[in-house]
């Protein structure tokens, strides 16, 4: 199968590559660029572990082919902060919003995108926003607490 040339931006860096059409964006980020912060859980769009931002919007990188990211601006967990932890990451850390950490990059990026759109959410809205991300060990309670704390941190920083 003919490889396809792609050009995109990943965490602010221009990237060009030749990829097999069947390579998912998640595999491209992990295996070609070495950005293994993006996790693969279910690989069919159910668990949310592979969530990244494309042009500012949260998407499942397992449900996107690398070739579809032509011209896109991709943000992964590695690019969220270049200088210590991002306030959303700090909030997860401080409020025990993670245990094993596998779902965390997807959880953090989902929360980050959500809080940009809705800086002062209710708990109900936080729960709905996280409904597409599965966690199998931390428990959702502290994750909701962490997202609420992150909203307060971000509001304080503005």
């Amino acid at each position: 199968m003919a490889r396809v040339s792609i050009g995109l931006t990943v965490n602010g860096q221009a990237v060009s590559a030749e990829v097999e059409p069947r390579m998912t964006l998640a595999d491209f980020l992990r295996d070609e660029l070495g950005l293994t912060g993006t996790k693969l859980g279910c690989e069919h769009g159910v668990c949310g572990a592979c969530t990244v931002l494309i042009d500012g919007a949260a998407v499942r990188s397992c449900l996107m082919l690398a070739v579809q990211a032509e011209g896109a601006d991709v943000l992964t967990i590695e690019g969220l902060s270049h200088n210590g932890l991002h306030p959303v990451q700090e909030a997860y850390w401080e409020h025990h919003g993670l245990q094993c950490g596998f779902c965390t990059p997807g959880m953090v990026l989902t929360a980050y995108a959500f809080l940009q759109e809705r800086p002062d959410p209710s708990d109900e809205e936080i729960r709905e926003a996280l409904a597409g991300n599965l966690c199998r060990c931390t428990g959702y309670q502290n994750i909701v607490v962490a997202v609420r704390a992150a909203a307060e941190k971000l509001a304080g920083a503005r």
Binding site: G48, A57, A58, V59, T110, G132
Partner: peptide
């Protein structure tokens, strides 16, 4: 329909 990351695509 799905979740926001699904609806974004």
């Amino acid at each position: 329909v799905g979740h926001p990351p699904i609806r974004n695509r």
